[in-house]
């Protein structure tokens, strides 16, 4: 009973905030609604017993992606009204395709039956008596080592790509050179001079 109430509560907020994301006039509000939607989706995952996915959703999507969106929206001067201008013109075609896809999905949903092989062939059946974070940890670095390492390479390539496309070396700025600073020896640059009273200092 309580479960059902919370499920409908979270789902309703999720759907409403998702709607607000695409209808809000102010893009900053849209991003904030997106964050709200992520939180509610995370709550639904918790209710399903998938607390690891719930946490990653909050950490990755709310913590990183949504904040990044917020930065982009606030720092770049994007005219969202202009972006939305073609809406009326493209709505009939786009809407028709959307409806078609929705119909197809409903048709698939109608025919859905869990595979009779699902039980025995599930890639990683949930072991008894451990939390699902623990269970993921058990397979991630062993059974799924290969895709895990590949994912690492993909992230490396993304980093190389970002640097390749954006880093510019400018000659006209003075940069802090840490190794030069660390390598400075007091002996070379500091001179301690005893100053006799009444006399000047010759440097």
């Amino acid at each position: 009973m309580i479960e059902a109430i919370f499920f409908y509560l979270f789902s309703a907020i999720l759907v409403l905030s998702a709607l607000m994301v695409i209808t809000a006039k102010n893009p900053v509000h849209a991003v904030l609604f997106l964050i709200l939607a992520f939180f509610n989706a995370a709550a639904l995952f918790v209710m399903l017993g998938a607390e690891f996915i719930a946490m990653t959703l909050v950490i990755v999507y709310v913590g990183a992606v949504a904040v990044l969106f917020l930065f982009v929206v606030m720092m770049l001067d994007i005219n969202f009204a202009a972006l939305r201008k073609g809406m009326k013109k493209h709505l009939p075609v786009g809407g028709a395709v959307g409806l078609l896809l929705l119909g197809e999905l409903l048709w698939i949903y109608k025919s859905w039956t869990p595979s009779m092989f699902a039980e025995q062939s599930a890639a990683s059946p949930m072991p008894e008596g451990v939390t699902n974070t623990h269970a993921l940890g058990q397979v991630l670095y062993t059974q799924y080592l290969y895709p895990f390492e590949t994912a690492g390479l993909i992230l490396l390539v993304a980093m190389i790509g970002a640097i390749t496309l954006t880093l510019r070396r400018r000659g006209d700025v003075r940069r802090q050179n840490v190794s030069d600073q660390v390598a400075r020896n007091p002996k070379d640059v500091i001179k301690v001079v005893k100053v006799a009273s009444g006399a000047g200092v010759e440097l």
Partner: peptide, 25 residues
């Protein structure tokens, strides 16, 4: 994956060999 319950090509081939292939999903 939802309909076959497997991501492994060899297992999928075995499952899809039979009746399952006619499902619209």
């Amino acid at each position: 994956y939802g309909f076959t319950g497997s991501v492994d090509f060899t297992q999928m081939a075995g499952i899809l060999q039979g009746h399952a292939s006619t499902l619209p999903g």
